[in-house]
Design a binder for these strands. Structure first.
Length: 273
DNA sequence: CCTTGAACCTGCGGGC
DNA sequence: TGCCCGCAGGTTCAAG
């Protein structure tokens, strides 16, 4: 589920109900996700006021009134649900937040590749989880020059390189394929060859794709945060991802699926060179 | 430093 | 119906 647009959507959805509220109760229903919860996490959060909810890379961050930041990653299968009925928690509802106005939010993650931890807001950029990260794909700091400089000398395929969060942050497996399609670049092209006009095409393609997905997510946000909420709102906009064997819009080739670095890549052999 | 492959974990759909 | 396999939006770590 969660690539950058989905995480951004989750942040905006949570901000609507949690900003300015206090955690009245935090229930950890197991002791870990991908990594252990820090000792005393529930107690540390209880009573704290949420000052700001924002995104860094694919992390949801909640700045608290004691100078700490709650760091949440949704992994592959995580999602946040704002509970509006009296349903019981399910098997994979691992953390349940209740605020001072009675709002209940559940963190659900079947595969448990997500994580939740706490760190001081000061120096967050040098935190182990963040210090290696490159520029956010949507930031002004992500430019064609910056991208080609980061890719210089790299022989790995551009599709694989785009998933390396040290080079650029926020491009996941779906939008890597979609961005390369929009930019007309073969996913197999050596990363170091993305310079000049190719870099000039790829950077705006990435930004456009991500912004369009955020816009689509924003419009279906209420559905997304329902208990039964499943995503998929941007799937109709995918031009190549998940479309192996279908005709490309160019009508001159079928969309092909290959495996790169153990991840699926989809592309058009005609449109992308 | 770069690159690749495996690992973490559960669920689902397809083929037999 | 049931079983086995491959596959899934991310990240990290070890090894070459």
């Amino acid at each position: 589920m969660p690539e950058l647009p989905e995480v951004e959507t989750v942040c905006r959805g949570l901000a609507g109900v949690l900003n300015g509220r206090r955690f009245a109760r935090v229930e950890l229903r197991r002791k870990d996700l991908r990594i252990p919860f820090p000792r005393g996490l529930a107690a540390a959060l209880t009573g704290r006021r949420i000052e700001l909810i924002y995104r860094r890379a694919k992390y949801v961050l909640m700045a608290l009134d004691d100078g700490n930041v709650l760091i949440i990653h949704l992994g592959m299968s995580g999602h946040m649900a704002i509970i509006k009925d009296d349903s019981s928690p399910g098997l994979h509802d691992h953390v349940i937040f209740t605020t001072d106005d009675g709002t209940v939010v559940r963190f659900n993650d079947p595969r448990r590749f997500g994580l939740m931890t706490l760190a001081p807001a000061s120096g967050l950029d040098s935190h182990k989880l963040f210090r290696h990260l490159g520029p956010d794909a949507l930031s002004d700091g992500f430019t064609p020059d910056v991208l080609s400089a980061a890719l210089k000398g790299r022989k790995a395929a551009i599709k694989t390189a785009l998933l390396d969060q040290r080079l650029v942050v926020g491009v996941g497996n779906i939008y890597a394929s979609e961005s390369l399609y929009r930019a007309g670049i073969s996913p197999k092209r050596p990363a170091g060859s993305i310079t000049g006009r190719r870099a000039a095409a790829l950077v705006p393609a990435i930004k456009q794709i991500l912004n369009e997905a955020i816009a689509a997510g924003g419009s279906s946000l209420r559905d997304h945060v329902q208990p039964s909420g499943e995503l998929g709102y941007f799937q109709n906009a995918w031009r190549v991802y998940g479309r192996e064997g279908e005709s490309c819009a160019c009508k001159r080739a079928l969309i092909k699926r290959i495996v790169q670095a153990a991840r699926s890549t989809f592309y058009c052999t005609r449109c992308q060179t």
